[in-house]
């Protein structure tokens, strides 16, 4: 089940829907996104809560048809210019969500139910403009509720600290809507900072966020979430986000940027030559107390 990034991404068909960036600004699978661009897998529907840059990069590469998300941009700088231009010109279709509504849509799919009700959305134009959201009176209390229909992505791509070759994965730090998305997706790719022996995972089963029955492919890719942070591994590369903002105001500028950062490298190993990892290393280590199981 452990394959190369090239192999894993090559299994995604054009026209697929993919959930990514599920832990919000944490552990975003940038390496997988860049490989999608290199392979030119297009006509994609991207699904996520907020997207801190990755969706903007995929839009700039011209491989996106639709986005179903709560926020797309650059959390350090605000605007994602490639997303903004594409949304304004109508070259991509955007379904606006709130963070909770996209989480509930995935949770509904993960639970095998057609929708979940919420007290959010009502009174907003996110609700008013979208025929897929319905208002219904709660038959028990009479309260007004919004119904959020399930979303089942074709793929979810998740970055984790470590996984076994079988696909059992330890993920720590905040997880956003990782669990609902993994449960909802037809196919799941786990990208791990390191692939470890199954015994390492089994010694701490409470830290397993994704189990093997949910996973199709495992890819080992150290630094695969850069420039986003990964708890215990590396900090967010804040300068990268600011530089990207300044370097991608026009499509021509984006193309030049992508030539260096995406097309100019064959894989993540080559990409790592472009960045100063020492500036991002953990300087203040926190080691959790020992966790004991046993019998």
């Amino acid at each position: 089940m452990t394959v190369s990034m090239t192999d894993a991404i090559g299994r995604i068909a054009p026209g697929s829907s993919i959930a990514m960036g599920l832990a919000l600004e944490h552990a975003i699978p940038f390496a997988a996104g860049h490989e999608l661009i290199r392979q030119g897998i297009d006509d994609l529907t991207l699904i996520g809560p907020i997207s801190d840059l990755l969706f903007d990069q995929l839009v700039g590469a011209g491989v996106v048809s639709s986005i179903r998300a709560a926020w797309v941009g650059n959390v350090s700088a605000g605007t994602g210019y490639r997303f903004r231009e594409a949304a304004e010109s109508g070259s991509i279709n955007v379904e606006n969500h709130s963070n909770f509504s996209i989480g509930l849509a995935l949770q509904a799919a993960a639970m095998g139910v057609p929708y979940l009700p919420t007290r959010s959305l009502l009174g907003s134009d996110i609700f008013a403009e979208n025929d897929r959201f319905l208002e219904q009176e709660d038959p028990f209390s009479g309260d007004r509720l919004a119904l959020v229909p399930a979303i089942e992505p074709d793929w979810a791509i998740v970055h984790v600290q470590r996984a076994s070759p079988a696909g059992d994965a330890h993920l720590w730090g905040n997880t956003g809507i990782t669990e609902p998305a993994v449960g909802a997706a037809d196919n799941v790719i786990v990208v791990a900072e390191e692939v470890v022996d199954e015994s390492v995972i089994k010694r701490d089963p409470s830290r397993v966020v994704i189990a093997r029955d949910q996973v199709d492919l495992v890819v080992e890719c150290p630094y695969g979430a850069h420039p986003s942070p990964v708890a215990g591994h590396y900090n967010r590369d804040n300068a990268y986000y600011l530089e990207y903002h300044g370097a991608t105001r026009t499509q021509e500028d984006y193309d030049a940027w992508a030539e260096t950062w995406i097309h100019g490298v064959d894989d993540r190993t080559a990409y790592r030559e472009l960045i100063d990892e020492s500036a991002l290393s953990i300087t203040q280590e926190t080691i959790a107390p020992e966790v004991r199981y046993g019998q």
């Binding site: 907020i50 926020w71 997303f83 949304a87 955007v94 709130s98 509504s101």
Partner: peptide, 9 residues
């Protein structure tokens, strides 16, 4: 076009 809601809504 602005980034959108995030959790604001």
């Amino acid at each position: 076009r602005l980034p959108g809601s995030g959790g604001a809504c």
